[in-house]
C-alpha cells in the first residue's frame, strides 16, 4: 500500500496524494497498536512485579504506588531462584556444547564421506525432526528410571541433546555444502589427518552456523518445561520454568511475589534477545523451517 503511494502518487492530484499519505499514517498507527498489544502483557508483568498485593488488586493497570524492590529479593530467596537459575544455566550450557560437538562432527561425516547406510542414517535423523517430543515422555521416564538417570542433570542434558541433534545436523550439513572441498584437499596434501582438518579448518569455518545452533539450543533448553516436569523431582535440581510453575502453585495468592519470580526468570532471555535479535530471528526461522 505504501509503495503505491510513492510509485503512482506523482501522477495524481494533490488531494489523492494526501489521502494516501493519511492512509499510510493510519496503517502505521495500527501497526503500533498491534506492537503495543503484543508487548503489553510483558509490561504488565514488570509493573506488577514491583507492587504490593494490595496495590495489585486496587489498581492492576496503574504504575506501582511505591516500587517494591523487595518483591524481587523475596521471590529470589523464597523461590530458591538462584539455585534454579544455576540449574538452568548448567543443563543449558552442557546440552548446547554437547549438541554442537556431536552434531557438527556427525554432519561433517555425513556431508563429506560416502559409506554404507549413509542414506538410511540421514533419513533416520530426518524422521527425528517429525517425532512429537511428548509422545516419548512416558517411555523415556520408564527407561531412565531403569537406568537410574531420573533426578540427575543427565536426565535433562541427554534427551535435550538427542532431540536437538537432527536440527543441528541438518543446519550444519546445509552449511558445509557451501564450503569448497579444495580447502581440505590442500590440507590433505600437507599431510593433515581428518581430525586436524576438522578441528583447525572446518570447525572455524562453521562458526556462523554453530552460533545459530547454539542460539536455538539455548532458547529451547532454557525454556523447556515438559522434560523437566517429568524427569526432575528433587527440589535442588529444578530448572527455572519448573520452579516457576510450582512457585505459582505454592504462592498462588501472593501475586506480586509470583510476578517478581517471573520477572527474574524472563530477564535473561529478554536481555539476550535485545542483544542478538537479528541472529535469533534468523536462527529460529531456519530451525523451524528445517524442523
Amino acid at each position: 500500500m505504501e509503495t503505491n503511494a510513492t510509485t503512482t502518487g506523482s501522477a495524481k492530484l494533490p488531494a489523492v496524494k494526501l489521502a494516501l499519505r493519511a492512509g499510510g499514517g493510519l496503517v502505521k498507527l495500527l501497526l503500533i497498536v498491534y506492537a503495543v498489544l503484543t508487548l503489553y502483557p510483558l509490561y504488565w508483568l514488570f509493573i506488577s512485579a514491583f507492587k504490593t498485593n494490595q496495590d495489585f488488586f486496587n489498581r492492576p493497570y496503574g504504575l506501582p504506588h511505591a516500587w517494591m524492590k523487595e518483591n524481587i529479593v523475596r521471590a529470589w530467596e523464597l523461590g530458591n531462584m538462584g539455585r534454579a537459575m544455576f540449574n538452568s544455566a548448567f543443563v543449558t550450557v552442557a546440552a548446547v556444547l554437547l549438541t554442537i560437538v556431536l552434531g557438527v562432527l556427525a554432519a561433517y561425516a555425513l556431508s563429506r564421506f560416502d559409506f554404507r547406510f549413509k542414506k538410511a542414517i540421514v533419513a533416520l535423523f530426518l524422521a527425528g525432526l517429525l517425532i512429537p517430543i511428548h509422545s516419548t515422555l512416558v517411555p523415556l521416564f520408564i527407561m531412565m528410571r531403569k537406568l537410574h538417570l531420573l533426578d540427575t542433570y543427565g536426565a535433562l542434558i541427554l534427551p535435550y541433546t538427542a532431540f536437538e541433534l537432527p536440527i543441528a545436523i541438518f543446519l550444519a550439513m546445509a552449511y558445509m555444502a557451501s564450503i569448497p572441498r579444495e580447502i581440505e584437499e590442500a590440507a590433505m596434501i600437507d599431510g593433515s589427518g581428518w581430525w586436524r582438518i576438522f578441528g583447525s579448518l572446518i570447525l572455524p569455518l562453521c562458526k556462523p552456523i554453530v552460533a545459530t545452533i547454539a542460539i536455538l539450543g539455548f532458547l529451547r533448553f532454557w525454556n523447556d518445561f515438559s522434560f523437566a516436569l517429568v524427569f526432575i523431582n528433587t527440589q535442588s535440581l529444578k530448572t527455572l520454568p519448573l520452579s516457576l510453575s510450582l512457585f505459582s502453585d505454592g504462592f498462588g495468592t501472593d501475586y506480586a511475589l509470583t510476578m517478581g519470580a517471573m520477572a527474574i526468570a524472563v530477564i535473561p532471555t529478554i536481555v539476550i534477545y535485545l542483544l542478538m535479535q537479528e541472529q535469533i530471528m534468523k536462527g529460529m526461522v531456519a530451525g523451524s523451517v528445517k524442523g
Binding site: 501497526l31 503500533i32 498491534y34 506492537a35 503484543t38 508487548l39 502483557p41 510483558l42 504488565w44 508483568l45 532458547l219 532454557w222 525454556n223 518445561f225 527455572l240 520454568p241 519448573l242 516457576l244 510453575s245 505459582s248 501475586y255 509470583t258 517471573m262 526468570a265 524472563v266 532471555t269 529478554i270 539476550i272 534477545y273 535479535q277 535469533i280 530471528m281 529460529m284
Partner: peptide, 25 residues
C-alpha cells in the same frame, strides 16, 4: 524493524511464563 522485533518477542519467552501471564489476564 522495531515492530518486527516487538511481534517476535513473545517467541523467546518460556511457555510457563506465557501460560502464567495469560492465566492472570
Amino acid at each position: 524493524r522495531f515492530i518486527r522485533s516487538a511481534v517476535f518477542m513473545p517467541m523467546v519467552l518460556s511457555t510457563v511464563v506465557v501460560g502464567l501471564i495469560w492465566g492472570y489476564i
